[in-house]
Design a protein around this nucleic acid. Structure first.
Lengths: 206, 206
DNA sequence: GTCTATAAGAAGATAGAC
DNA sequence: GTCTATCTTCTTATAGAC
C-alpha cells in the first residue's frame, strides 16, 4: 500500500478510536512511520485527510451495496433463494449480516467514526442512517416481502415484519461495538431471536 | 439556578452538540455570561466540569430509576397494572418510554454526549449500555414476564419477547436522535409495531 | 466572584535543506 | 518525499486588581 493510502488507513483507525479532534497529525504520521510535516506532501491539511476517508467510504459503500446487505450476490438472485428459505437459512441471513457489519475491518472502523462524529457533521449522521437503518430495512424488506408473497412468512405489514427482523440485529450490533466481549452472548440471542421470529411469522404447519 | 450549576448545564449542552474537545472553556463561560477565568473559581479545570456532569448524570439516573423506565410509580405497582393491560395501554407504555427518552431535556443531552464520547472513555460506554440497553430490557422483561404469567401474552422465552418489544423502540430512538424530523413517522411506526407485537404474542381470543 | 492581562503549552502548518 | 527547525494560532490556566 502506498503512503497516501496508508495515511488514510491509519487515520481512520485513530479517528474511530479517539474521534477527529483527539487525533493529532503527528499521531497519524507516527503510525505511518514518517514525521508530521511529510504528511503535508500527501494531503493539504488534517481536514483533507478526513474528507478523503469519507469519500472512500462512500465509494466502498456504493461498490459493495449488495455484499454489504447479504450474501454477496445481487438482489434478484437472493430473492430466488429466499423464496424457499428454511429456518436455518433465515438464521444464516441474520448472522451473516450481523457478522459482516461487526467484523469487516473497514465497516467497523467507519461505523465507529460515524458514531463519534455524527453530531459534529450532519452529513455523517445521514451516511450512518442510510447505511445502518434505511438501506438494510429496504433491502431486507424486499427479501422478506418475497417470502411473504410465496407464503413462507405470513403478515399483512411487511414493513413492521422487517423492523421486527432487523431491529434486534441492529441493537445487538450497537452492543457489540461498545462491548466486544458480549459477541458470543449476542450471537446466541440473535439465533434465538430469529427462531422466534420464524415461529411468529412462519407458516403454522412445518 | 446558581452559577456553579449553570456552568454544568451550559457545558452539557455544548458537549452534547460538539463533543468535549471542540468546546472551549471560553464558550461555556460566554453562555453563562461570564469570562473564562471566572469559571476557574467554580471548577478546578475543564475536566472537572465534565466529571461533575457525569456525577450528576449518575445521581439523576439512580434517582429516577423508576420514572425513567415507565410511568413514574414503582415496579410492583406497575406490575399490578400491567397484569390486566389492554393493547392501548401497551402502546402507551412503549410511547411513554420512547417520548421520555427522546424529549426529556437532560436525558436527551446526556445521551448525545455519551454517544459522542463513548469510545473516548470506556466508563461512558458502560453508562450508555446500562441506561439504554440493559436496564430497559431488564425492567420491561419483568413487566412482560408478569403479563406472560397471567396469560395476557404468550411465550416460552420472555427474554426474546422483551427484545422484540424494545429493540424497535431503541432503534427508532437512535433514528430520532440523529434526525428529529422523523419523530412523527417514528411514532406511527412505533404504534404499528406494538399492535403487531400484541397480535403476535397476545391471546388468540380477544 | 468577576475582571484584564498574560503566561505556558499544545497542535497545525510552513520553510527550506537533503 | 522526508527531514529538522520554526512559525503561528489557539486554548487552557494563572496572577493579581477590583
Amino acid at each position: 500500500m502506498d503512503t497516501k493510502q496508508r495515511i488514510l488507513d491509519e487515520a481512520l483507525t485513530l479517528f474511530s478510536e479517539k474521534g477527529y479532534a483527539n487525533v493529532f497529525v503527528a499521531d497519524i504520521a507516527a503510525r505511518v512511520g514518517i514525521k508530521a510535516p511529510s504528511l503535508y506532501k500527501h494531503y493539504k491539511n488534517k481536514q483533507a485527510i478526513f474528507d478523503a476517508i469519507i469519500e472512500e467510504m462512500n465509494r466502498r459503500f456504493v461498490e459493495q451495496a449488495g455484499a454489504l446487505q447479504i450474501s454477496g450476490t445481487d438482489a434478484a438472485v437472493d430473492a430466488e433463494i429466499y423464496k424457499q428459505i428454511s429456518e436455518e437459512q433465515l438464521i444464516d441471513l441474520g448472522k451473516n449480516l450481523f457478522l459482516y457489519f461487526l467484523h469487516d475491518d473497514y465497516t467497523r472502523r467507519f461505523r465507529k467514526m460515524l458514531t463519534i462524529e455524527q453530531f459534529h457533521d450532519k452529513k455523517l449522521a445521514d451516511v450512518y442512517m442510510k447505511q445502518y437503518v434505511d438501506d438494510p430495512l429496504s433491502y431486507q424488506g424486499m427479501l422478506l416481502g418475497m417470502m411473504s408473497q410465496t407464503g413462507i412468512l405470513q403478515t399483512d405489514n411487511v414493513e413492521i415484519m422487517t423492523l421486527h427482523f432487523y431491529a434486534p440485529i441492529y441493537m445487538l450490533l450497537t452492543v457489540c461495538d461498545r462491548e466486544p466481549k458480549r459477541e458470543k452472548e449476542a450471537l446466541k440471542t440473535l439465533e434465538a431471536h430469529i427462531r422466534e421470529f420464524n415461529r411468529l411469522y412462519g407458516r403454522k404447519s412445518g
